[in-house]
């Protein structure tokens, strides 16, 4: 049997091969070569693309450069969603490398948040962790931590240091033994086909009868359209970190092992490809 800790490593070190191309209408002084990068699934676009920005700025005049933003097949990519979620939601089942278009003009104010510095990413990341802990432990664990522990979570993510991050994050994954799980599971369900940003509700990991709730139970309760009708055809895929976990998987286990560093389970519901 594999150690469950291996799962944490596999999630942490998940990478997406990506090809960045400059948008055709951007004005350059010489030809802009595409730029290839392995993107960490658990990180944020604006946190790991300094090299991409430098690469394209080299061929552009200074006055043509303003805030960088990214797009995939016409969809502006939200930097405040983890990279793995963006890929699962918008680009699953397409050929690799993931082809992202880079823009420096016409920032889509309506769709994207500005990200002028890494402090903005840090603030967003910490707010997510705090919200997750409010659901899991009524904020008790995160509030008992010191400022330096909060910083260590962020630095662990920023510098891709698994041990550094998990030394602190494991405390956020604990619960009193008599409870058998968190108070509520921090999850968000995204659907490629709807306008709503995501579904988030209160959901307990343990049923009133004591049995463990599963991923299937969660979907049945908050997003029944994602589940195939009995004897019907499964028209959707339920993706976390690029895989389709079995619907029988206990949601508490998923929350502890497949959450992103922001402590949320980000679940994508996408149409199943027809082939």
């Amino acid at each position: 049997m594999t150690d469950d800790k291996d799962v944490l490593r596999d999630v942490w070190f998940g990478r997406i091969p990506t090809c960045f191309t400059l948008y055709q209408d951007e004005i350059t002084e010489r030809e802009a070569e595409p730029y290839y990068l392995l993107l960490p699934r658990i990180s944020y676009l604006t946190l790991v693309t300094d090299k991409v920005k430098k690469h394209f700025q080299k061929v552009m005049r200074q006055e043509e450069v303003s805030e960088i933003w990214f797009e995939y097949e016409g969809t502006p990519l939200k930097w405040h969603y983890p990279i793995g979620l963006l890929f699962d939601l918008h680009a699953s089942n397409t050929a690799l490398p993931w082809s992202i278009t880079v823009h420096f003009k016409n920032f889509p104010e309506k769709d994207l948040l500005h990200c002028h510095s890494k402090d903005v990413i840090e603030a967003h990341f910490m707010a997510c962790i705090k919200e997750a802990d409010a659901l899991k432990h009524k904020s008790q664990v995160i509030n008992e931590m010191q400022k330096k522990d909060h910083k260590q979570l962020w630095m662990g993510l920023q510098n891709d240091k698994f041990e550094q991050f998990w030394a602190i994050n494991r405390k956020l994954m604990e619960y009193p033994p008599e409870d058998n799980g968190f108070r509520y599971i921090p999850f968000r369900i995204y659907q490629a086909t709807t306008e709503r940003p995501f579904i988030q509700k209160l959901f307990r990991p343990i049923a009133s009868g004591g049995q463990l709730h599963t991923l299937g139970d969660l979907l049945k309760d908050v997003c029944p359209s994602a589940i195939a009708p009995e004897d019907g055809e499964q028209k959707t895929q339920v993706m976390i970190h690029g895989i389709e976990p079995m619907l029988e998987t206990p949601i508490q286990w998923l929350s502890e092992h497949m959450s992103y560093p922001d402590n949320f389970l980000h679940i994508s519901i996408i149409p199943r490809p027809t082939d």
Binding site: H80, A134, F198, I199, K201
Partner: peptide, 21 residues
């Protein structure tokens, strides 16, 4: 801030915040 502790996610709906907090 919600619950005097965290800032809600920028695209979080008020209905969701209400349901959870």
């Amino acid at each position: 801030y919600v619950n005097q502790s965290f800032a809600p996610s920028p695209d979080q709906e008020v209905g969701t915040l209400y349901e959870c907090f």
